[in-house]
Design a protein around this nucleic acid. Structure first.
Lengths: 200, 200
DNA sequence: GTGTAAATTGGTATTTATACCTATACAAAG
DNA sequence: CTTTGTATAGGTATAAATACCAATTTACAC
């Protein structure tokens, strides 16, 4: 597993510096960005990661950054920090999937605790996503016809039923079925079913 | 599906009355409770339901009520309302799985909107939970031996392999397998696999 | 056009699973 | 003691899947 990293996005240089100093003193990898735009400009960080972002910043706000990341499909945990937040803002952020919402002035040990929680959670998330994308890649290797046959197979239909539904011979279904098993590295029907279910 | 119902828990009678009046005028079923204790005293409400609870109340607080319900395994959506809340309180509630956190004075149309969202979401949740408990009940009907056979079956093993592993004849495995299919109402192996996976 | 991947179909033999049937042994519950 | 449920095992016949083999057609890219 890659080195866990904390990504700090805040327009206030003093905060960036002190936070980085603190996190590094606690043995954590930390990177800083002066704006949401700067964070988005770098290649997607390796996981497990945790984003610590100010809500109010010149340019793109922390909440807009969150929205963009989620649309982009990133599930990176986000801890918001704010000097002048209110309940509505906090609740909205949480509903959009923020992990936490802390007020300045920051309690460093509290922040660290939350960061560690989220790094751990993200490691699990990453594993799960990895399994899913593995399954997805395997499925992507199937041709359209093979995929059709597999879907019907997963529904529990017999080769002869599949053949009838697709208007082809049982022999052809058998051929496709064998190819599906081979491409997916499955040794039994239950492997196929599990793979199909885990991929969605 | 049962009638969707809103459960209002607030110690302020004026708020209970006005909210009930409003919700009923909008065609919703509403029940009121003067305290968390009173809500807990009644039998668990039918779903889909949505709980609207004040945070600060004499006796048990709204947040304590939420904690208790979650421990009890209830997934009922909860909308908190509060007159003197702060960010920490709201964030904690959201992290514990609250659906929303609104401040008094309440905007009735906003509240209604959130309630409707949550009733809809709860209908889905209920369906999902129903399927899961169905699966669980079916599995509970199996004898220990049948369950053993089923587990190996789900792992993709052939009858003869199962027979060897359990030290019994293939015939017996076939008998158990047939009983499993019958008890679970499964028409194919993939039904079994799906059921086994959805039950955990 | 030529080549490649995909989809299609067939033969044969073997292995598995299924659908019926019956039957014995044992333990717990009535 | 009898009944019920469970686990065990077998017979027979059919249906289905698998493991090998080989072949034709079609569509798309180079």
């Amino acid at each position: 597993m890659a080195e866990p990293t904390v990504h700090v996005v805040d327009d206030d240089e003093a905060i960036r510096d002190s936070m980085t100093l603190y996190l590094k003193s606690m043995g954590l990898n930390a990177r800083t960005y002066a704006s949401a735009e700067e964070f988005l400009a770098v290649p997607e960080p390796a996981r497990p990661s945790c984003l610590v972002a100010d809500v109010r910043m010149p340019g793109m706000s922390g909440l807009e950054l969150q929205k963009l990341l989620r649309e982009r499909g990133s599930s990176m945990p986000i801890i918001f920090i704010t000097g002048h937040g209110d309940i509505v803002m906090a609740v909205d952020a949480m509903k959009e999937g923020a992990s936490d919402f802390l007020e300045k002035p920051l309690d460093n040990s509290l922040l660290l605790e939350r960061i560690l929680e989220n790094l751990e959670k993200d490691a699990d998330t990453q594993q799960k996503e990895h399994r899913q994308s593995d399954a997805g890649e395997h499925l992507a290797r199937l041709t359209a016809r093979e995929r059709e046959v597999m879907d019907l197979l997963v529904e529990g239909k017999l080769n002869k039923v599949i053949a009838a539904e697709l208007g082809i011979s049982v022999r052809t279904v058998e051929a496709h079925r064998a190819r599906v098993m081979e491409k997916l590295g499955a040794r039994s029907l239950s492997d196929i079913v599990r793979l199909a279910l885990s991929a969605r």
